[in-house]
Design a protein around this nucleic acid. Structure first.
Length: 586
DNA sequence: GCATAGGTAAACACTG
DNA sequence: ACAGTGTTTACCTATG
Protein backbone atom coordinates (compact mmCIF):
# COMPACT_ATOMS: atom_id res chain seq x y z
CA UNK A 1 0.00 0.00 0.00
CA UNK A 2 2.41 1.18 -3.00
CA UNK A 3 1.25 2.83 -0.39
CA UNK A 4 1.06 6.04 -0.82
CA UNK A 5 -1.50 7.63 -1.99
CA UNK A 6 -4.34 7.48 0.13
CA UNK A 7 -4.14 11.12 -0.35
CA UNK A 8 -7.46 12.67 -1.14
CA UNK A 9 -5.52 15.35 -2.85
CA UNK A 10 -4.01 12.78 -5.08
CA UNK A 11 -7.35 11.24 -5.67
CA UNK A 12 -8.96 14.48 -6.56
CA UNK A 13 -6.28 16.00 -8.64
CA UNK A 14 -4.56 12.95 -9.90
CA UNK A 15 -1.66 15.10 -10.86
CA UNK A 16 0.41 12.48 -12.53
CA UNK A 17 -2.14 10.75 -14.64
CA UNK A 18 -1.63 13.01 -17.58
CA UNK A 19 2.07 12.72 -17.13
CA UNK A 20 1.80 9.03 -17.16
CA UNK A 21 -0.36 8.96 -20.18
CA UNK A 22 2.15 11.04 -21.92
CA UNK A 23 5.41 9.67 -20.70
CA UNK A 24 4.37 6.16 -21.38
CA UNK A 25 4.58 7.17 -24.93
CA UNK A 26 8.18 7.00 -25.84
CA UNK A 27 7.63 9.52 -28.57
CA UNK A 28 6.18 12.05 -26.22
CA UNK A 29 8.93 11.48 -23.78
CA UNK A 30 11.54 12.16 -26.36
CA UNK A 31 9.88 15.41 -27.27
CA UNK A 32 9.77 16.56 -23.72
CA UNK A 33 13.22 15.33 -23.10
CA UNK A 34 14.59 17.16 -26.01
CA UNK A 35 12.96 20.41 -25.08
CA UNK A 36 13.58 20.36 -21.43
CA UNK A 37 17.26 20.45 -21.90
CA UNK A 38 17.99 21.02 -18.26
CA UNK A 39 18.33 17.45 -17.21
CA UNK A 40 20.98 14.93 -17.94
CA UNK A 41 20.16 11.54 -19.35
CA UNK A 42 20.42 9.94 -15.98
CA UNK A 43 18.17 12.55 -14.50
CA UNK A 44 15.62 11.77 -17.08
CA UNK A 45 15.83 8.10 -16.45
CA UNK A 46 15.34 8.71 -12.79
CA UNK A 47 12.53 11.05 -13.53
CA UNK A 48 10.86 8.54 -15.73
CA UNK A 49 11.04 5.98 -12.98
CA UNK A 50 9.64 8.42 -10.54
CA UNK A 51 6.66 9.28 -12.61
CA UNK A 52 4.98 5.96 -12.16
CA UNK A 53 5.09 6.39 -8.48
CA UNK A 54 4.29 10.01 -8.57
CA UNK A 55 0.91 8.91 -9.76
CA UNK A 56 0.44 7.56 -6.32
CA UNK A 57 1.87 10.47 -4.44
CA UNK A 58 0.38 13.53 -3.01
CA UNK A 59 1.68 16.72 -4.56
CA UNK A 60 3.56 17.59 -1.44
CA UNK A 61 5.32 14.27 -1.66
CA UNK A 62 6.12 14.97 -5.28
CA UNK A 63 7.80 18.14 -4.27
CA UNK A 64 9.70 16.28 -1.66
CA UNK A 65 11.13 13.74 -4.00
CA UNK A 66 11.77 15.88 -7.02
CA UNK A 67 14.53 18.32 -7.51
CA UNK A 68 13.45 21.77 -8.69
CA UNK A 69 14.80 21.17 -12.14
CA UNK A 70 12.94 17.89 -12.28
CA UNK A 71 9.76 19.58 -11.21
CA UNK A 72 10.26 22.19 -13.85
CA UNK A 73 10.92 19.50 -16.39
CA UNK A 74 7.81 17.67 -15.31
CA UNK A 75 5.74 20.77 -15.75
CA UNK A 76 7.27 21.29 -19.12
CA UNK A 77 6.62 17.70 -19.98
CA UNK A 78 3.03 18.04 -18.94
CA UNK A 79 2.65 21.06 -21.13
CA UNK A 80 4.07 19.08 -23.98
CA UNK A 81 1.66 16.31 -23.19
CA UNK A 82 -1.23 18.72 -23.31
CA UNK A 83 -0.03 20.15 -26.56
CA UNK A 84 0.33 16.70 -27.96
CA UNK A 85 -3.10 15.80 -26.72
CA UNK A 86 -4.55 18.91 -28.28
CA UNK A 87 -2.83 18.01 -31.47
CA UNK A 88 -4.29 14.52 -31.36
CA UNK A 89 -7.71 15.89 -30.64
CA UNK A 90 -7.42 18.38 -33.45
CA UNK A 91 -6.46 15.63 -35.82
CA UNK A 92 -9.19 13.48 -34.44
CA UNK A 93 -11.91 16.04 -34.93
CA UNK A 94 -10.53 17.00 -38.28
CA UNK A 95 -10.74 13.43 -39.44
CA UNK A 96 -14.10 13.09 -37.88
CA UNK A 97 -15.38 16.13 -39.69
CA UNK A 98 -14.09 14.72 -42.93
CA UNK A 99 -15.74 11.43 -42.20
CA UNK A 100 -18.94 13.15 -41.26
CA UNK A 101 -18.93 14.96 -44.55
CA UNK A 102 -18.14 11.76 -46.33
CA UNK A 103 -20.83 9.88 -44.53
CA UNK A 104 -23.27 12.64 -45.10
CA UNK A 105 -22.56 12.46 -48.78
CA UNK A 106 -22.92 8.74 -48.75
CA UNK A 107 -25.97 8.83 -46.61
CA UNK A 108 -27.61 11.41 -48.79
CA UNK A 109 -27.18 8.97 -51.63
CA UNK A 110 -28.34 5.98 -49.71
CA UNK A 111 -30.72 7.61 -47.37
CA UNK A 112 -33.68 6.22 -49.14
CA UNK A 113 -32.29 2.74 -49.08
CA UNK A 114 -31.16 2.86 -45.51
CA UNK A 115 -34.39 4.37 -44.32
CA UNK A 116 -32.79 5.15 -41.00
CA UNK A 117 -30.24 7.88 -40.29
CA UNK A 118 -29.25 5.93 -37.24
CA UNK A 119 -27.20 3.64 -39.40
CA UNK A 120 -25.15 6.62 -40.43
CA UNK A 121 -24.56 7.47 -36.87
CA UNK A 122 -23.64 3.93 -36.13
CA UNK A 123 -21.02 4.04 -38.79
CA UNK A 124 -19.90 7.35 -37.53
CA UNK A 125 -19.59 6.07 -34.03
CA UNK A 126 -17.75 2.99 -35.12
CA UNK A 127 -15.37 5.16 -36.99
CA UNK A 128 -15.01 7.39 -34.03
CA UNK A 129 -14.32 4.43 -31.81
CA UNK A 130 -11.56 3.31 -34.09
CA UNK A 131 -10.06 6.73 -34.07
CA UNK A 132 -10.42 6.98 -30.37
CA UNK A 133 -8.70 3.68 -30.08
CA UNK A 134 -5.87 4.94 -32.21
CA UNK A 135 -5.62 7.89 -29.94
CA UNK A 136 -5.56 5.66 -26.93
CA UNK A 137 -2.91 3.45 -28.40
CA UNK A 138 -0.80 6.44 -29.18
CA UNK A 139 -0.87 7.30 -25.53
CA UNK A 140 -0.17 3.93 -24.14
CA UNK A 141 2.15 1.82 -26.18
CA UNK A 142 3.11 0.29 -22.88
CA UNK A 143 -0.17 -1.52 -22.96
CA UNK A 144 1.06 -3.76 -25.63
CA UNK A 145 4.17 -4.39 -23.62
CA UNK A 146 2.10 -6.51 -21.34
CA UNK A 147 2.04 -9.83 -23.04
CA UNK A 148 -1.36 -10.19 -21.45
CA UNK A 149 -2.76 -6.83 -22.16
CA UNK A 150 -5.39 -6.25 -19.52
CA UNK A 151 -7.38 -4.12 -21.83
CA UNK A 152 -7.96 -7.09 -24.05
CA UNK A 153 -9.37 -9.20 -21.31
CA UNK A 154 -12.74 -9.56 -19.79
CA UNK A 155 -13.02 -9.23 -16.02
CA UNK A 156 -12.77 -12.96 -15.55
CA UNK A 157 -9.75 -13.11 -17.79
CA UNK A 158 -8.22 -10.17 -16.12
CA UNK A 159 -8.70 -11.73 -12.75
CA UNK A 160 -7.08 -14.87 -13.97
CA UNK A 161 -4.09 -12.89 -15.11
CA UNK A 162 -4.07 -10.99 -11.89
CA UNK A 163 -4.20 -14.19 -9.91
CA UNK A 164 -1.23 -15.45 -11.80
CA UNK A 165 0.64 -12.26 -11.26
CA UNK A 166 -0.31 -11.93 -7.66
CA UNK A 167 -0.48 -15.38 -6.26
CA UNK A 168 1.35 -17.48 -8.72
CA UNK A 169 4.59 -17.11 -6.87
CA UNK A 170 3.56 -19.64 -4.32
CA UNK A 171 3.24 -22.21 -7.00
CA UNK A 172 5.79 -23.82 -9.14
CA UNK A 173 7.32 -20.96 -10.96
CA UNK A 174 8.36 -23.04 -13.86
CA UNK A 175 4.88 -24.28 -14.39
CA UNK A 176 3.50 -20.82 -14.07
CA UNK A 177 6.00 -19.49 -16.48
CA UNK A 178 5.13 -22.11 -19.00
CA UNK A 179 1.50 -21.44 -18.44
CA UNK A 180 2.06 -17.77 -18.82
CA UNK A 181 3.93 -18.15 -22.02
CA UNK A 182 1.08 -20.04 -23.53
CA UNK A 183 -1.60 -18.10 -21.80
CA UNK A 184 -1.79 -15.49 -24.50
CA UNK A 185 -3.88 -17.83 -26.51
CA UNK A 186 -5.18 -19.92 -23.66
CA UNK A 187 -6.86 -17.29 -21.66
CA UNK A 188 -8.79 -15.89 -24.51
CA UNK A 189 -9.92 -19.23 -25.76
CA UNK A 190 -10.65 -20.64 -22.37
CA UNK A 191 -12.62 -17.72 -21.07
CA UNK A 192 -14.65 -16.85 -24.08
CA UNK A 193 -16.96 -19.72 -24.69
CA UNK A 194 -17.91 -20.46 -28.17
CA UNK A 195 -15.29 -18.31 -29.77
CA UNK A 196 -12.74 -19.64 -32.09
CA UNK A 197 -9.16 -18.63 -32.04
CA UNK A 198 -9.56 -16.76 -35.26
CA UNK A 199 -12.33 -14.73 -33.81
CA UNK A 200 -10.26 -13.92 -30.81
CA UNK A 201 -7.43 -12.80 -32.93
CA UNK A 202 -9.61 -10.64 -34.98
CA UNK A 203 -11.14 -9.25 -31.87
CA UNK A 204 -7.79 -8.34 -30.45
CA UNK A 205 -5.17 -7.73 -33.06
CA UNK A 206 -2.42 -7.25 -30.49
CA UNK A 207 -3.11 -10.61 -29.08
CA UNK A 208 -3.32 -12.15 -32.48
CA UNK A 209 -0.07 -10.59 -33.41
CA UNK A 210 1.69 -11.84 -30.35
CA UNK A 211 0.23 -15.27 -30.82
CA UNK A 212 1.08 -15.55 -34.44
CA UNK A 213 4.33 -13.74 -34.53
CA UNK A 214 5.57 -14.79 -31.16
CA UNK A 215 7.88 -12.26 -29.66
CA UNK A 216 7.56 -9.70 -32.37
CA UNK A 217 4.90 -7.69 -30.65
CA UNK A 218 6.84 -7.86 -27.43
CA UNK A 219 9.92 -6.96 -29.37
CA UNK A 220 8.42 -3.70 -30.37
CA UNK A 221 6.97 -3.01 -27.01
CA UNK A 222 9.84 -3.92 -24.76
CA UNK A 223 12.77 -3.35 -27.05
CA UNK A 224 13.52 -0.15 -28.79
CA UNK A 225 16.40 2.19 -29.47
CA UNK A 226 18.76 -0.48 -28.32
CA UNK A 227 17.46 -0.52 -24.79
CA UNK A 228 15.15 -2.71 -22.84
CA UNK A 229 11.89 -0.90 -22.31
CA UNK A 230 10.90 -2.92 -19.32
CA UNK A 231 9.89 -0.40 -16.68
CA UNK A 232 12.86 0.67 -14.70
CA UNK A 233 15.34 -1.36 -16.68
CA UNK A 234 16.65 0.40 -19.77
CA UNK A 235 19.53 -1.99 -20.11
CA UNK A 236 21.42 -1.53 -23.31
CA UNK A 237 21.07 -4.43 -25.70
CA UNK A 238 23.05 -4.32 -28.88
CA UNK A 239 20.68 -6.49 -30.82
CA UNK A 240 17.44 -8.33 -30.50
CA UNK A 241 18.95 -11.65 -29.57
CA UNK A 242 20.87 -10.01 -26.81
CA UNK A 243 17.66 -8.40 -25.70
CA UNK A 244 15.96 -11.79 -25.65
CA UNK A 245 18.77 -13.12 -23.51
CA UNK A 246 18.49 -10.18 -21.25
CA UNK A 247 14.76 -10.30 -20.85
CA UNK A 248 14.64 -14.00 -20.23
CA UNK A 249 17.30 -13.77 -17.58
CA UNK A 250 16.44 -10.48 -15.93
CA UNK A 251 12.70 -10.24 -16.23
CA UNK A 252 11.44 -13.58 -15.14
CA UNK A 253 8.39 -14.20 -13.06
CA UNK A 254 9.68 -13.04 -9.74
CA UNK A 255 8.67 -10.60 -7.08
CA UNK A 256 10.15 -7.66 -8.88
CA UNK A 257 8.49 -8.37 -12.17
CA UNK A 258 5.23 -8.99 -10.42
CA UNK A 259 5.44 -5.69 -8.63
CA UNK A 260 6.31 -3.93 -11.83
CA UNK A 261 3.42 -5.55 -13.61
CA UNK A 262 1.15 -4.34 -10.88
CA UNK A 263 2.45 -0.85 -11.27
CA UNK A 264 1.97 -1.08 -14.98
CA UNK A 265 -1.56 -2.28 -14.44
CA UNK A 266 -2.21 0.76 -12.35
CA UNK A 267 -0.80 2.93 -15.06
CA UNK A 268 -3.17 1.27 -17.45
CA UNK A 269 -6.00 1.72 -15.04
CA UNK A 270 -5.28 5.41 -14.78
CA UNK A 271 -5.34 5.68 -18.52
CA UNK A 272 -8.56 3.78 -18.67
CA UNK A 273 -10.08 6.15 -16.17
CA UNK A 274 -8.93 9.04 -18.26
CA UNK A 275 -10.47 7.42 -21.28
CA UNK A 276 -13.66 6.96 -19.35
CA UNK A 277 -13.81 10.66 -18.59
CA UNK A 278 -13.11 11.56 -22.18
CA UNK A 279 -15.80 9.19 -23.29
CA UNK A 280 -18.27 10.77 -20.94
CA UNK A 281 -17.37 14.12 -22.36
CA UNK A 282 -17.91 12.77 -25.82
CA UNK A 283 -21.26 11.40 -24.82
CA UNK A 284 -22.24 14.77 -23.45
CA UNK A 285 -21.11 16.40 -26.64
CA UNK A 286 -23.04 13.98 -28.73
CA UNK A 287 -26.06 14.35 -26.56
CA UNK A 288 -25.78 18.06 -26.95
CA UNK A 289 -25.63 17.59 -30.70
CA UNK A 290 -28.78 15.53 -30.52
CA UNK A 291 -27.35 12.19 -31.33
CA UNK A 292 -29.69 10.34 -29.03
CA UNK A 293 -29.32 6.98 -27.37
CA UNK A 294 -27.02 5.72 -30.03
CA UNK A 295 -23.91 6.58 -28.19
CA UNK A 296 -24.83 4.49 -25.23
CA UNK A 297 -25.69 1.61 -27.47
CA UNK A 298 -22.61 1.83 -29.56
CA UNK A 299 -20.28 2.57 -26.74
CA UNK A 300 -21.47 -0.25 -24.61
CA UNK A 301 -22.14 -2.68 -27.38
CA UNK A 302 -18.65 -4.08 -27.65
CA UNK A 303 -18.71 -5.11 -24.03
CA UNK A 304 -22.11 -6.62 -24.28
CA UNK A 305 -21.55 -8.28 -27.54
CA UNK A 306 -17.92 -8.37 -28.43
CA UNK A 307 -18.43 -10.92 -31.10
CA UNK A 308 -20.71 -8.85 -33.15
CA UNK A 309 -18.51 -5.84 -32.88
CA UNK A 310 -15.25 -7.57 -33.26
CA UNK A 311 -15.26 -7.45 -36.98
CA UNK A 312 -16.39 -3.88 -37.26
CA UNK A 313 -14.23 -2.70 -34.43
CA UNK A 314 -11.29 -4.94 -33.83
CA UNK A 315 -10.38 -3.05 -30.75
CA UNK A 316 -13.83 -2.78 -29.35
CA UNK A 317 -13.06 -4.78 -26.27
CA UNK A 318 -10.20 -2.51 -25.50
CA UNK A 319 -12.34 0.48 -25.79
CA UNK A 320 -14.80 -0.78 -23.32
CA UNK A 321 -12.35 -2.42 -21.08
CA UNK A 322 -12.48 0.44 -18.72
CA UNK A 323 -15.75 -0.90 -17.60
CA UNK A 324 -14.63 -4.44 -17.54
CA UNK A 325 -11.29 -3.93 -15.92
CA UNK A 326 -11.38 -5.41 -12.51
CA UNK A 327 -10.70 -2.70 -10.08
CA UNK A 328 -7.25 -3.03 -8.69
CA UNK A 329 -8.49 -1.07 -5.84
CA UNK A 330 -11.85 -2.63 -5.36
CA UNK A 331 -13.45 0.70 -5.76
CA UNK A 332 -16.62 -0.85 -6.89
CA UNK A 333 -18.64 -1.72 -3.85
CA UNK A 334 -20.06 -4.64 -5.67
CA UNK A 335 -16.59 -6.00 -6.06
CA UNK A 336 -15.70 -5.78 -2.48
CA UNK A 337 -16.25 -9.08 -0.96
CA UNK A 338 -18.69 -8.96 1.87
CA UNK A 339 -16.94 -8.93 5.11
CA UNK A 340 -18.05 -8.54 8.62
CA UNK A 341 -18.01 -4.96 9.63
CA UNK A 342 -17.38 -5.79 13.16
CA UNK A 343 -13.84 -4.76 13.88
CA UNK A 344 -13.39 -7.82 15.97
CA UNK A 345 -12.49 -10.62 13.68
CA UNK A 346 -9.80 -11.79 11.40
CA UNK A 347 -7.71 -8.74 10.90
CA UNK A 348 -5.60 -9.65 7.98
CA UNK A 349 -8.52 -10.70 5.91
CA UNK A 350 -10.38 -7.57 6.59
CA UNK A 351 -7.45 -5.33 6.12
CA UNK A 352 -6.52 -6.29 2.66
CA UNK A 353 -7.91 -5.61 -0.69
CA UNK A 354 -9.60 -8.61 -2.04
CA UNK A 355 -10.98 -9.81 -5.24
CA UNK A 356 -14.52 -10.81 -5.47
CA UNK A 357 -14.93 -14.08 -3.72
CA UNK A 358 -16.37 -15.64 -6.80
CA UNK A 359 -13.12 -15.19 -8.59
CA UNK A 360 -10.96 -17.01 -6.18
CA UNK A 361 -13.01 -20.12 -5.83
CA UNK A 362 -10.16 -21.82 -4.06
CA UNK A 363 -10.71 -20.63 -0.58
CA UNK A 364 -8.81 -17.90 1.14
CA UNK A 365 -5.82 -16.82 -0.83
CA UNK A 366 -2.62 -15.63 0.53
CA UNK A 367 -2.60 -12.01 -0.08
CA UNK A 368 -0.91 -9.22 1.58
CA UNK A 369 -0.88 -5.61 0.74
CA UNK A 370 1.67 -4.57 -1.70
CA UNK A 371 2.55 -1.23 -0.29
CA UNK A 372 3.85 0.05 -3.57
CA UNK A 373 0.74 -0.52 -5.47
CA UNK A 374 -2.34 -0.30 -3.38
CA UNK A 375 -3.64 3.11 -2.90
CA UNK A 376 -6.76 5.10 -2.98
CA UNK A 377 -6.14 5.60 -6.61
CA UNK A 378 -9.36 7.16 -7.60
CA UNK A 379 -11.79 9.67 -6.37
CA UNK A 380 -14.40 6.99 -6.36
CA UNK A 381 -12.40 4.91 -4.02
CA UNK A 382 -11.71 7.80 -1.76
CA UNK A 383 -15.37 8.56 -1.61
CA UNK A 384 -16.15 4.93 -1.15
CA UNK A 385 -14.18 4.60 2.03
CA UNK A 386 -15.23 7.98 3.18
CA UNK A 387 -18.88 7.26 2.91
CA UNK A 388 -19.31 3.57 3.40
CA UNK A 389 -18.53 1.36 6.27
CA UNK A 390 -15.84 -0.53 4.44
CA UNK A 391 -12.64 -1.17 6.18
CA UNK A 392 -9.73 0.32 4.29
CA UNK A 393 -7.38 -2.35 3.07
CA UNK A 394 -4.32 -0.80 4.63
CA UNK A 395 -2.44 -1.46 7.74
CA UNK A 396 -2.69 0.90 10.62
CA UNK A 397 0.91 1.88 10.09
CA UNK A 398 0.17 2.81 6.52
CA UNK A 399 -2.83 4.85 7.46
CA UNK A 400 -1.05 6.64 10.24
CA UNK A 401 1.80 7.46 7.98
CA UNK A 402 -0.57 8.71 5.34
CA UNK A 403 -2.35 10.90 7.84
CA UNK A 404 0.90 12.43 8.94
CA UNK A 405 2.20 12.88 5.42
CA UNK A 406 -0.93 14.70 4.42
CA UNK A 407 -0.51 17.20 7.17
CA UNK A 408 0.90 20.49 6.02
CA UNK A 409 3.79 20.29 8.45
CA UNK A 410 4.12 16.53 8.32
CA UNK A 411 3.24 16.13 11.92
CA UNK A 412 0.05 15.43 13.80
CA UNK A 413 -1.05 15.05 17.33
CA UNK A 414 -2.62 11.83 18.31
CA UNK A 415 -5.98 13.46 18.33
CA UNK A 416 -5.44 14.84 14.86
CA UNK A 417 -4.57 11.36 13.70
CA UNK A 418 -7.79 10.14 15.20
CA UNK A 419 -9.65 12.87 13.41
CA UNK A 420 -8.03 11.99 10.13
CA UNK A 421 -9.13 8.42 10.54
CA UNK A 422 -12.72 9.33 11.24
CA UNK A 423 -12.76 11.99 8.59
CA UNK A 424 -11.28 9.80 5.90
CA UNK A 425 -12.89 6.48 6.65
CA UNK A 426 -16.42 5.89 7.67
CA UNK A 427 -15.29 2.62 9.09
CA UNK A 428 -13.44 4.40 11.86
CA UNK A 429 -16.40 6.35 13.00
CA UNK A 430 -17.34 3.66 15.40
CA UNK A 431 -15.66 1.22 17.70
CA UNK A 432 -13.33 4.02 18.57
CA UNK A 433 -11.81 2.30 21.55
CA UNK A 434 -10.62 -0.56 19.42
CA UNK A 435 -8.98 1.24 16.59
CA UNK A 436 -7.70 4.10 18.68
CA UNK A 437 -5.94 1.63 20.83
CA UNK A 438 -4.54 0.08 17.71
CA UNK A 439 -3.37 3.44 16.48
CA UNK A 440 -1.58 4.14 19.72
CA UNK A 441 -0.19 0.65 19.70
CA UNK A 442 1.19 1.12 16.21
CA UNK A 443 2.62 4.51 16.96
CA UNK A 444 4.50 3.10 19.86
CA UNK A 445 5.47 -0.11 18.22
CA UNK A 446 6.87 1.02 14.94
CA UNK A 447 10.17 2.76 14.82
CA UNK A 448 9.08 4.69 11.80
CA UNK A 449 6.83 6.83 13.94
CA UNK A 450 8.66 9.44 15.88
CA UNK A 451 7.20 11.34 18.74
CA UNK A 452 8.16 14.97 18.93
CA UNK A 453 7.44 16.91 22.05
CA UNK A 454 6.82 20.57 22.27
CA UNK A 455 5.64 22.76 25.05
CA UNK A 456 2.02 22.24 24.20
CA UNK A 457 2.15 18.51 23.88
CA UNK A 458 3.44 15.95 21.50
CA UNK A 459 3.14 15.43 17.80
CA UNK A 460 3.96 12.42 15.73
CA UNK A 461 6.09 12.42 12.63
CA UNK A 462 7.23 9.77 10.21
CA UNK A 463 10.77 8.60 9.91
CA UNK A 464 10.56 8.06 6.20
CA UNK A 465 13.89 6.32 6.06
CA UNK A 466 12.79 3.79 8.58
CA UNK A 467 9.42 3.45 6.94
CA UNK A 468 10.92 2.79 3.54
CA UNK A 469 13.43 0.43 5.02
CA UNK A 470 10.75 -1.56 6.71
CA UNK A 471 8.64 -1.51 3.64
CA UNK A 472 11.44 -2.62 1.39
CA UNK A 473 12.09 -5.48 3.75
CA UNK A 474 8.52 -6.53 3.39
CA UNK A 475 8.56 -6.34 -0.36
CA UNK A 476 11.56 -8.52 -0.67
CA UNK A 477 14.86 -9.36 0.80
CA UNK A 478 16.36 -9.30 -2.64
CA UNK A 479 18.77 -6.40 -2.94
CA UNK A 480 18.23 -6.15 -6.66
CA UNK A 481 14.54 -5.72 -6.07
CA UNK A 482 15.22 -3.06 -3.53
CA UNK A 483 17.43 -1.34 -6.01
CA UNK A 484 14.82 -1.53 -8.67
CA UNK A 485 12.03 -0.35 -6.47
CA UNK A 486 14.05 2.38 -4.95
CA UNK A 487 14.95 3.76 -8.31
CA UNK A 488 11.47 3.34 -9.61
CA UNK A 489 9.87 4.86 -6.59
CA UNK A 490 11.95 7.93 -6.74
CA UNK A 491 13.09 7.12 -3.29
CA UNK A 492 16.58 6.70 -4.49
CA UNK A 493 18.13 8.82 -1.86
CA UNK A 494 15.97 7.52 0.86
CA UNK A 495 16.37 3.96 -0.12
CA UNK A 496 20.04 4.40 -0.42
CA UNK A 497 19.85 5.65 3.06
CA UNK A 498 17.79 2.64 3.89
CA UNK A 499 20.52 0.37 2.71
CA UNK A 500 22.97 2.24 4.81
CA UNK A 501 20.56 1.91 7.61
CA UNK A 502 20.44 -1.80 7.13
CA UNK A 503 24.20 -1.89 7.25
CA UNK A 504 24.20 0.20 10.34
CA UNK A 505 21.67 -2.06 11.93
CA UNK A 506 23.72 -5.10 11.09
CA UNK A 507 26.52 -3.61 13.07
CA UNK A 508 24.24 -2.63 15.90
CA UNK A 509 22.90 -5.72 17.57
CA UNK A 510 21.27 -3.45 20.07
CA UNK A 511 18.72 -2.68 17.42
CA UNK A 512 17.49 -6.19 17.20
CA UNK A 513 14.11 -6.86 18.54
CA UNK A 514 15.15 -9.80 20.59
CA UNK A 515 16.74 -7.70 23.25
CA UNK A 516 15.16 -8.50 26.54
CA UNK A 517 13.28 -5.43 27.60
CA UNK A 518 15.39 -3.72 25.03
CA UNK A 519 12.91 -4.15 22.28
CA UNK A 520 11.03 -1.12 23.26
CA UNK A 521 11.19 1.60 20.73
CA UNK A 522 12.67 4.16 23.05
CA UNK A 523 15.25 1.83 24.41
CA UNK A 524 16.29 0.68 21.00
CA UNK A 525 16.59 4.20 19.86
CA UNK A 526 18.40 5.33 22.87
CA UNK A 527 20.83 2.47 22.76
CA UNK A 528 21.42 2.93 19.09
CA UNK A 529 21.94 6.56 19.64
CA UNK A 530 24.41 5.79 22.35
CA UNK A 531 26.19 3.42 20.04
CA UNK A 532 26.40 5.72 17.14
CA UNK A 533 27.25 8.83 19.07
CA UNK A 534 29.04 7.27 21.92
CA UNK A 535 31.81 9.77 21.80
CA UNK A 536 29.69 12.77 21.19
CA UNK A 537 28.17 13.05 24.60
CA UNK A 538 24.61 13.27 23.37
CA UNK A 539 21.68 13.37 25.61
CA UNK A 540 19.26 10.56 24.84
CA UNK A 541 16.70 13.18 24.11
CA UNK A 542 18.79 15.01 21.61
CA UNK A 543 17.39 14.20 18.24
CA UNK A 544 18.85 14.97 14.89
CA UNK A 545 16.71 16.19 12.09
CA UNK A 546 15.31 13.54 9.88
CA UNK A 547 14.13 14.29 6.41
CA UNK A 548 12.42 17.39 7.71
CA UNK A 549 15.50 19.41 8.13
CA UNK A 550 13.89 22.70 7.25
CA UNK A 551 11.04 22.15 9.55
CA UNK A 552 13.33 21.00 12.23
CA UNK A 553 15.36 24.12 11.96
CA UNK A 554 12.28 26.19 11.99
CA UNK A 555 11.05 24.52 15.06
CA UNK A 556 14.41 24.92 16.55
CA UNK A 557 14.17 28.60 16.01
CA UNK A 558 10.97 28.53 17.90
CA UNK A 559 12.79 26.74 20.60
CA UNK A 560 9.90 24.63 21.61
CA UNK A 561 10.51 21.24 20.12
CA UNK A 562 12.11 18.23 21.57
CA UNK A 563 12.29 14.96 19.80
CA UNK A 564 12.12 12.51 22.54
CA UNK A 565 12.69 9.41 20.54
CA UNK A 566 14.63 9.03 17.38
CA UNK A 567 16.66 6.27 15.84
CA UNK A 568 19.76 8.31 15.40
CA UNK A 569 21.77 5.43 14.12
CA UNK A 570 19.15 4.90 11.50
CA UNK A 571 19.69 8.33 10.17
CA UNK A 572 22.33 7.70 7.56
CA UNK A 573 23.42 11.25 7.22
CA UNK A 574 24.00 11.65 10.87
CA UNK A 575 27.45 10.25 10.80
CA UNK A 576 28.24 12.97 8.35
CA UNK A 577 26.44 15.71 10.14
CA UNK A 578 28.37 18.08 12.15
CA UNK A 579 27.03 18.90 15.52
CA UNK A 580 25.83 22.19 14.29
CA UNK A 581 22.81 20.48 12.85
CA UNK A 582 21.87 19.03 16.13
CA UNK A 583 20.26 20.78 18.94
CA UNK A 584 19.65 19.97 22.49
CA UNK A 585 16.56 21.60 23.71
CA UNK A 586 16.58 20.04 27.05
C1' DG B 1 6.13 -26.36 11.58
C1' DC B 2 8.20 -22.06 12.15
C1' DA B 3 8.95 -17.04 11.74
C1' DT B 4 6.97 -12.85 10.89
C1' DA B 5 3.56 -9.17 10.33
C1' DG B 6 -0.48 -7.20 11.66
C1' DG B 7 -4.74 -6.64 14.57
C1' DT B 8 -6.89 -6.75 19.01
C1' DA B 9 -7.17 -6.58 23.90
C1' DA B 10 -5.57 -5.28 28.10
C1' DA B 11 -2.64 -3.78 31.84
C1' DC B 12 0.05 -0.23 33.43
C1' DA B 13 2.33 4.33 33.96
C1' DC B 14 2.34 9.09 33.30
C1' DT B 15 0.30 13.64 32.93
C1' DG B 16 -2.83 17.53 33.06
C1' DA C 1 -10.58 10.70 40.35
C1' DC C 2 -10.59 10.92 35.64
C1' DA C 3 -9.51 11.01 30.75
C1' DG C 4 -6.08 11.07 27.40
C1' DT C 5 -1.74 9.48 26.02
C1' DG C 6 1.96 6.28 25.58
C1' DT C 7 4.24 1.74 26.36
C1' DT C 8 4.31 -2.97 26.69
C1' DT C 9 2.80 -7.68 26.57
C1' DA C 10 0.02 -11.45 25.12
C1' DC C 11 -2.66 -13.72 21.95
C1' DC C 12 -4.61 -14.63 17.55
C1' DT C 13 -4.67 -15.18 12.41
C1' DA C 14 -2.72 -14.89 7.86
C1' DT C 15 1.11 -15.41 5.24
C1' DG C 16 5.77 -16.70 3.49
Amino acid sequence: MPESPLSPTTARQNPASSLLSHTDSSGGERVANGNAGTLSGNDWQTLQHKQVFLAMMAPQQMQQFLAPNQLQALIHQKQQALLLQQHHLKEFYKKQQQQIQLLQQQSSKKIKELSSPQLVFQQLIQLQQQQQQQLLRAHRPALSSLALSPACLSPAEMQQVWKELTFGMTEDKTAIKANRESSAGKIMSAKVPGRQADDQQSACPHRAESTVKGDHAAKHALFGHGVCNWPGCESVCENFSQFIKHISSEHTLDDRSTAQCRVQMQVVQQLELQLCKERERLQAMMAHLHLPSLEAQSLSAPAQSPQSDAAADPCGPQLTSVNSLPSLSSSDPAQVSPRPLDPVGTPSQRCEKEFPSHTSGVGPMRRRNHPLVYSLSSENEYELYKNTDLRPPFTYATLIRQAIMEASDMQLTLNEIYNWFTRTFAYFRRNAATWKNAVRHNLSLHKCFVRVENVKGAVWTVDEVEYQRRRSQKITGNPSVMKSISSSAGFGTLMNSGLQTALAEASLPGLKKDNVRGNSKSQIQKSSMADSHRNQNFSPRVQPPLFLEDKELKMNDQGCLIQTVKPVSLQPDMSENDEGHLFDLE
